[in-house]
Amino acid sequence: MKIVYLHQYFEKEKGGIRSYEIAKKLVSEGHQVTMITGNDISSCEGITIISTKTPYRQEYGYIRRIFSFVIYMLKSLFYALREKDIDLVYATSTPLTVGLVGKWVAKIKKCAFVFEVRDLWPDVPIQLGIIKNNFLIKILYKIESDVYDKADKIIALSEGMKMDIVQKGIHPDKVEVITNFADISRFKSISIMDQIQLYTKYPQLQNRFISLYAGTIGFVNHIDYILKLARSTKNDEILYVIVGDGKEKPRLIREAKLAKLTNVLFLDAVSKAEAQTLVTMSDVGMCFVRDEEILNRNSQNKLFDFWAAGKPTLINYKGWQDKVMREFKAGQGFDYGNIDGLRLYLENLSMHKKKNTKKCSNVSVNWPSSIKKRIY
């Protein structure tokens, strides 16, 4: 089967690599996959990649983002229509305009159309107050309804997202849930040498209790919550490490400096391999969002990475991920306003680690001399 896969932000080495893993899996099963993306990436792993070379960064303002969405929509439509013998077009949001391309290509090429809903657009930006123009809201809801109607199948990333889609009049049988995921074998293959390289690169991480956030630093991700947590933390051993890029990052760095938060470390975005190594070096993971009910349906990819690495995780929202985490004791969920409870939990974890470290201090390890120099 020949599949045209539409994903404006396709990545294979950093950030969310869900599409990369799905495309690889499809290729391994004998399908022909052509990925059309805005990023400038070379073909790999049997995936044919066509780039529209459409610049997009989280730091862009909303007008420039919309311009990027439109340019990608037009270019991806052009490239997709040039493809021959298409059996299926798979479009993954956001932006919602990708669904329009999928719908048009499927209609013209007379092929099946699958639409993957990664975020509930336009509900999320509307309910967060990002989109306020009533005329634009009507247009976006019309696009959403039309895309859902024309899709042969809709993929949601959580049961909560599926429920929201069904409540808009879509038949439940039309919607399938495929959550995010992580490759456990990747974390098992990370060696102590990989970790030592990052300890050498970022010496601030040495001998600290690492509470890690790795991902986009945007409005929804609400990194302000971590700064608030850092302000209330008195234990000097706890270090809040924030890895990634995004529109909110410059402001947050300024605020951390003004507040003289010596327990917060901002790092630039790293490759997926380095991000996974950092996860194995962390003591606890953080996945926070703003205090909005609609965000309870999300499916944060970074949460799966922490779980795959066997790291306890902290979240400040409800929903299915909170239930799963509690059921399998994979971390701790807190009410958004319970920042003191969250801090106490972290401090207790830090003290527990310190006690265990002291118990093991007399254990002799015969490190190679080259490694001893880096550690000690």
Rank of each mutant, 00 (worst) to 15 (best):
Q197M: 09
N356S: 15
D149W: 10
E45P: 08
A214S: 11
E116C: 07
K373F: 15
S189K: 04
Y225K: 03
Y199T: 04
C44Q: 12
A214M: 00
T52Q: 09
K153W: 04
I49Q: 12
S299W: 12
V279A: 06
L198F: 08
D173V: 03
P122T: 09
M193N: 06
K2Q: 15
K2A: 14
T54H: 08
H352E: 15
G341R: 04
V147I: 11
F266L: 14
I130S: 03
M193T: 06
Q195I: 03
T52H: 10
Y79I: 08
D291F: 01
H352F: 13
L314C: 08
K103C: 02
L344Y: 09
S189M: 00
W104M: 10
I155C: 03
K138Y: 04
L258E: 15
N133Y: 08
E13I: 04
L120A: 09
H31K: 07
F187R: 00
L157G: 14
K260D: 01
T280N: 01
I49R: 14
K311I: 07
E11D: 02
I190E: 00
I139R: 11
K260L: 10
I86K: 02
Q167M: 13
L227C: 13
T280I: 00
P203R: 01
N39R: 14
F181P: 01
S51H: 09
T92C: 13
A275F: 00
Y9L: 11
I3R: 02
Q276H: 11
I217Y: 11
V175F: 05
S42M: 06
T48K: 15
Q167F: 07
L344E: 15
T37R: 04
K354S: 12
I130D: 05
L342D: 01
K142H: 04
W121E: 02
S299G: 06
W104H: 05
L100M: 08
K150R: 12
I196A: 03
S93Y: 06
L229N: 05
V101Q: 04
A259P: 06
P203V: 09
V284C: 08
I217N: 03
K302R: 14
I253H: 14
I165Y: 12
K75V: 15
V70Y: 15
Y148R: 03
F181T: 07
